[in-house]
Write a protein that binds this DNA or RNA. Structure first.
Lengths: 124, 124, 124, 124
DNA sequence: GTGGTCTAGACCACA
DNA sequence: GTGGTCTAGACCACA
């Protein structure tokens, strides 16, 4: 299901959040699909339930998933993109960072766009 | 000179590193240009000297700047891009994250490429 | 009849309790009216019978409904308001919380009173 | 400083969140004021640092406070009310609940408005 | 020192 | 069983 890299500098809860969002975008998980309970996932990926819980709460805050009392947790059915000024600014900052880093690796705009192409192919 | 945002979630030392690299790419700083000493910069941006020092060490490790004993610190003159496999993988990961986040903000590939265009215009 | 939102953060049994009290205040349910049995309601709203039972017990404790052995459950006929000090304090706390939250949404006292007006119109 | 009631059914972290917002509204804490560090407050109110941390993160998410790296945590200076549809709906629901509960305590609209008056006097 | 992350483990309300 | 809350305690990056 979700691949967790304990050696990564990226926090586990963040890997979980991104992992689910990626699977949803790829269509591996569809709106309305049930996802594992906190306890289930924590035992699967061998992480503490609190860590998984933190990830789920973040995903719920972002409206990517929703919990239905007594039924479980599901991929949100009515996700509406939220255009948040602050988030947009953050995204721009991240892109700028990538452009700079790419440049320092000898890569120009073409190369970055190429990588972007590959990513989008992977995401389907 | 360099803009530091203490409110940002991005560590200050990282902001310094990125700030210098950005100024170098934009040509505001040219190879051979002298940059402020750790003490100078730390007093200018009101940051802990240790923080500035850490940033300079990172810039030096990346060969973006070089220190000449007794003379000061300078923008590296003969920077050679390094195509590090590990870094390339990290870059790809960052781009994927951006694609996913953009998607969750209702933005598709076109929009991301558009933002990339703007960034490259800004970097000149 | 009663609308239950499993996605709400509000417990289902609480939604049932509030739902009945609202219908009674609105006059949709009148003193002496029969209400569904636990089993009936639980199958209607697709909830666990234990959940409905808990709600009914709470409503009974508050004297809003009463069960007559062998006959069924009914809206209480002679409801007497109870001015419980503890409850009054709790109510005040809830109102304070609303005032604070409203303030943080840029709403002043006027706006809250306006909302209160609307609510009372809705309740009839 | 902040009063925590361990006997309350309201979670400690929520009491902290509300407590700060109340003090800010009352003007006891002003924009730019420093608030205790997580560790300080946790030792003051004798709660676990994690609990305080959770409260601070929530306050930061709500833009009520902000952390400046290496300087500490402060009451936000540029708070802008956010008019969130969902939050507005939730507020309405809470007000309705109050109206219903008040009614069941024999209190009408006038009484609720009176309580609201008192609250706003207290908040200043 | 300061906050962020994580684990282990407990208790509780809810369904 | 399920998620939410909390404690105790550890480790780490950052300043």
């Amino acid at each position: 299901m979700i691949q967790i890299d304990g050696r990564s500098s990226k926090p586990i809860y963040e890997q979980i959040v991104e992992g689910f969002k990626e699977m949803i975008i790829k269509g591996i998980l569809k709106p309305g699909d049930k996802i594992p309970s906190v306890r289930e996932l924590s035992s699967i990926i061998m992480a503490n339930p609190n860590t998984v819980s933190k990830a789920y709460q973040e995903l719920e805050r972002q409206k990517a998933i929703e919990t239905i009392r007594g039924r479980g947790t599901f991929v949100a059915v009515n996700y509406k993109p939220r255009v948040d000024d602050e988030k947009l600014e953050s995204l721009k900052g991240q892109i700028k960072k990538i452009a700079i880093e790419a440049h320092y690796m000898g890569m120009g705009k073409q190369d970055v766009v190429k990588m972007l192409d590959d990513i989008y192919k992977e995401l389907g």
